[in-house]
Design a protein around this nucleic acid. Structure first.
Lengths: 106, 106
DNA sequence: GCTTTGTGATACCGTTTGGTTTCACATTTA
DNA sequence: TAAATGTGAAACCAAACGGTATCACAAAGC
């Protein structure tokens, strides 16, 4: 078990953080922009983003005085790959997803 | 977000529970048999199995005075499917994100 | 310079989590 | 019946979690 795998699973355990990942899918957002979508303070959102970063699920880049947060597909893939251990026990739908991810990361 | 999805992610957040699922892959085990693989009491293992059950990740059947625990592939698949949300974004974003991340980390 | 705006970080608080200990209940076997 | 074995559940505790409030720092615009 890699540290990133553990931190990734921990990060995904909170529904707010999973929703943040959905918000970030396809676009970069600042902390303030993410916070607009939730009924909580920016400090709380910052904590969630930090935990997502520790799990390698998002990346951050600076632009002026702003920090833009984006999903890190490679980090998400690392967590998703854990389920591959059980490939022999279910139908091929996940295998299809898995192969598509692997194709994308080539 | 279904309740099972949330409880499933919560159950997977703990490394002991993920290891239990690996132990149960392909065979049914009693609580005592699972506990033999860890340095913790059966009561603690029972708690983990209960949480895995709440997440619909395992099923339990009685046999005599024993209870046999087994992985529930459908429950695991339900959690794994969450990652499918990002299917549409992986194609268009992965390469861009990867290059930007590599640029930032240089 | 000064103000505004965005982020970072700390202290604090109530709740949850992961573990133990202990006891009770249920089922097999002598 | 009694003893042995396996599970269930409660009380308890330290640590982690999710949130707030507050303050400090950095960059852009006046």
């Amino acid at each position: 078990m890699s540290a990133h795998e553990q931190l990734g699973f921990r990060a995904l355990a909170d529904p707010t953080r999973r929703e943040i990942l959905h918000l970030l899918a396809g676009r970069e957002l600042t902390i303030a922009e993410v916070a607009e979508n939730f009924d909580m303070t920016r400090a709380a959102v910052k904590k969630h983003l930090s935990i997502l970063g520790e799990g390698d699920l998002i990346s951050v880049r600076a632009e002026g005085r702003s920090k833009l947060n984006a999903v890190n597909p490679a980090g998400l893939k690392r967590v998703a790959d854990w389920f591959g251990y059980f490939d022999a026990f279910w139908d091929e739908r996940l295998n299809t997803l898995k192969s598509e991810i692997e194709k994308d990361t080539q």
